[in-house]
Structures are given as C-alpha cells and as structure tokens.
Write a protein that binds this DNA or RNA. Structure first.
Lengths: 212, 212
DNA sequence: CAATTTACTGACTTGCTGGTCAGTAACATC
DNA sequence: GATGTTACTGACCAGCAAGTCAGTAAATTG
C-alpha cells in the first residue's frame, strides 16, 4: 500500500528548455482563460496546450492565480500598446479625428482580442483590484484623456460646441462598448449589423437626434 | 463500519410547508446567484438562506442549473414587468418621452436589481441560450421597439430628424449600458459621477457634439 | 393512540481540480 | 563512462461542492 511509483518511459521525451517555458505557459494560459474564464480554466488542459505536464507549470508559477495575473498583464500590454499617438497625429477636422478614433475602438474592442480580456475582467475582476486599476489606466483613463484633447481642440477650432460632454467624454464611445457587450451576449442569436450600427453611432454623436 | 446514522434531535424543528418552499428557495437562490454568480453559488448556503437543508432543494429542483433557471425566469418577469405602457402614455414632446425613458433605464440598470441579472447573464449566459433569448426579447427587443415608436412619432411631429438612428435606436440607450458596465468594473476604484454623466448623455443624444 | 404517509434532514458518496513530490532522464562536467 | 545537477513528469493528495438516500419526525388517517 505504499505510494508505488510505476514509472513508464517518458512518452514524447520532453526537451529541457528553461527559457522558453514561461512564455509558452503564459500563451497557453491566455488561450485557456479567454475560452473558459478563471474558474473553469483547467491547469491540466493548460499544460497540455503548452506541451508539458502540469507539474512543470508549478516550476514557473506559484499558483493558478499567479499564472492568471501573468497572462493578464501580458495580454494588456500586448493588446493596448500604441494607437494614442497615431490617432492624435492625424491633422484634420474633429470629424476626422473622432471617426478615426472610433474605428480604432471598434477594431480593438469588437472584432479584436481586447474583447476576451474585457470579458474576463468583467467576470473575474473583483478578485484583482490591481489588474482592474491597470486596465482602467490603460483604457478608460487614456481614452478619455485623448477624447478630451480632441474635443478641446475642436472647441478652439469652432467645430465643437461646449457642453457637458467635454467633462464626461465617455458617452461618446459608450455605443462601441454597448456593441461589444451585445455581441458577447447575443452574438449567436441576435447579431447587430455592424455597418448600420456604426453609421448610426457616428451620426448621433455628431448631430444628435433632434431636428434643427 | 456501517453507514451509522447518528440522528440528533431535529434542531429548529422544521415545519412542513410544501407550498411555500419553492418560492422561498427561488428567492434564496436569486440572492445567492446575484452575489456569487452561478459557479460560486453554493447550494448549502442557499439552503441555509432559505432556512432548510440542502436535501430539500432537491425535492423541488432537479439540479443547481434547474434552480438557476427558475431564479432567472422569476427575476426577469418581476423586474421587467411594466414600464413600457408607462413611458408611452406620457403626452409630451419627444424630449420628454426620451428623457423619461432614459431615467427609467438608469433606474433599473444602474441602480436597480437588473444589474445583477445582467452581470450573471453576461458571465454565464453561454450555457443557457434559452434564457438569453428570453432576456433579449424582454429587454433589447422590447426597448428598441419602444424607441422606434417614440422616434417615429417625433419625426411625424417634426421634432426628430430622420437618419440612421431610426433603424438602430440602440445607440441612444447605449451610454446607460456603458455606465452600468463601468460601475460593475470600476465602481469601487473609479466611480463615475452619475448626475454629470446623465446630463452629458442627454445632451449628446439630443444635439450631438458638433457646432451648428 | 397506533399505523401510515411524506416533507424534511444531513452524513455520505462522487467527481473534479488545484497543488505536491518522489522519481526520471536530459544535459553538463570531469 | 561515471557522477552530479536540474528540468521535467505524472501518480497521488486534499479539499471542496454537487448530488444521494437511509433515517426521522411532522402531519394525517383510521
């Protein structure tokens, strides 16, 4: 009744690659967490995806949560790095700048990888205030600062009228987030038409719904 | 080594109340699911909240999932029942109607009970397409039909200009959903000022951001 | 009051998964 | 080739929670 260890010949004869492991594990982790969220994510499956055994994960990460944090950090920086300068560098009317910014947002949030990250944080964010803060800084904070700049510039050029939006520019990009949320919930059953939605978004943002 | 049953005196001497149980269990379930989502919700805790033992739950519901479905159904109908007629009955300008509708939405989605439900479905909805469909019908479907009516009436009265929004009225209420999502993620760390946000929302919805 | 029915209980079973560690083999050095 | 080091393996452990069911007692019946 001892803990007999019946060792079989190590099947695919794993090579030893200390340097490559962490990144590979994180990559497998991102994929697994995207697909299943934190709770349902399964370490054995992550190990399989990374082509190693479960025990190896624990050589590089202290716990499931530690791996999750590493994966989130990696994902945030890889997905969110750039775009600000790009948007601001365009010389053009406020219309152009805003349209450009929105296209950028939709591309990331709706079609892109940012959606999965967004979903995970929405779902599992409670337990990790640090990550939430970082995410906030890199998305909302950054985005609304950028928007404020664009709007202020627009006011100066006489293209934008002043109003409460200047202080709470979130409302401008809100429909993009709504679209992402709608897609998350109803993608398969009741999809929205993107082109049509985008057109409506831009139109309302610029002119509102009232006549005159 | 038999399965000895050491029966203690039945502690609080539970009464037998076959009729009242299901509703009580569902109520306890709603509270638990709101607080923890589906996965972390714990049946023993639900039983405790309902003042019964775990086994009793299984006298009335086949599984955790069945209880969850019952809870969701109950919640949807209790939270979403009304408001439509109320909003439409108001005789006034389109401004009034829309402002009224929005206040209603914020009250439900942002401050009210609908938020927890929304969060759960966003998080756990994949596994239950039926519930998602029902939810869609009772919220999005209904809401956008209502909005289309209001806008069409506004166009007739010359208060609303025609445009792509008439076909995709979602963009109008999107900022309310954004606010709810923002609250879910950043409530504790970076809350938005509601009054200010609401004002900006209404302003943009009516007039847009561009001058003239 | 005894006999019967049935709402209810909670210890137990079962299954799953995060985490451990004795054992193995790939590489390094002599 | 022998010896040492260490990346790696995977059977096992521990604990938790969904679900079960033998047993109990509240109501009901005769």
């Amino acid at each position: 009744m001892t803990k007999v260890a019946k060792r079989r010949d190590c099947p695919p004869a794993q090579r030893r690659r200390k340097e490559a492991r962490p990144a590979e594990i994180v990559a497998a982790g991102i994929s697994e967490f995207e697909e299943h969220g934190f709770h349902r994510a399964n370490l054995s499956r992550i190990a399989r995806k990374a082509g190693i055994s479960k025990g190896t994960i624990y050589l590089y990460f202290a716990s499931k949560e530690a791996l999750f944090l590493a994966a989130i950090e990696e994902h945030i920086t890889s997905v969110m790095g750039e775009s600000e300068a790009e948007v601001l560098s365009v010389e053009g009317t406020t219309r152009d700048l805003l349209t450009n910014l929105l296209k950028n947002m939709y591309a990331r949030f709706v079609h892109g990888e940012a959606q999965a990250l967004f979903r995970i944080l929405l779902t599992e964010g409670d337990r990790m205030p640090d990550v939430i803060s970082e995410y906030h800084a890199m998305t909302i904070q950054r985005g609304s600062t950028l928007l404020k700049k664009i709007l202020a510039r627009g006011v100066e050029r006489g293209e934008v009228k002043s109003g409460p939006v200047l202080k709470t520019p979130h409302v401008i990009i809100a429909p993009a987030v709504y679209f992402a949320v709608h897609a998350m919930m109803f993608k398969s059953s009741q999809p929205l038409d993107f082109e049509q939605y985008f057109e409506a978004h831009v139109d309302v943002m610029f002119h509102g719904v009232l006549a005159d």
